[in-house]
Amino acid sequence: MEKDQVNPDFKVVIIGGSAGSLNVLMQILPQLPAIKSFAIVIVVHRKSTDEQTFEELIELKSAVKVKQVEDKVPLLPGFIYVAPSNYHLLFEKNNTLSLDTSEKVNYSRPSIDVSFESAAEVYKNQLVGILLSGSNADGTNGLKVIQNEGGTVIVQNPESADMPFMPNNAIQNMIPDYILNIQEILQFILSMDN
């Protein structure tokens, strides 16, 4: 089935974060109107017990609809998808999402690097990768791959992050297209439907 590859005709915003990132997401997502031309995928490190609560919170506060991620769920513009805890989240060429329970990467599952790399391979220049607050090195390699594949890379300004290590690590190892404060990230996402 993956052989029937079609060029995705929509954009994907993939957001990775760890400690301190939920707070950032809750400043951004509730400000978004219903989105049309792109999908948002969120990969954050968290405890499995928080899982439902976070998705319910987004559903409650945001105008964008949340689609529950199950294996092989179609990825569609207009929706938010959140990587389930304890699985890596991967992207298939037929615009579906796959899950994987293989070894942790950067002590993490889901790993941001794994999802960024996989998304970059499928969505190429249609992909925007955003790395938020966190205290681990996950995400940096993924951002490099996104950039190599022609996608756009945004790193949260470490000065605006509760845990600056993760965005700092990215900035020290690559040149992001944008380094933005929380409100600027929101403006960037808002501009994507224009």
């Binding site: 993956e2 991967l90 992207f91 298939e92 060429k93 796959s98 994987d100 293989s102 794994v114 996989s118 391979e121």
Partner: peptide
């Protein structure tokens, strides 16, 4: 097999 995972492996 799912390509995304197989390719990683």
């Amino acid at each position: 097999y799912s390509r995304a995972s197989l390719k990683r492996r």
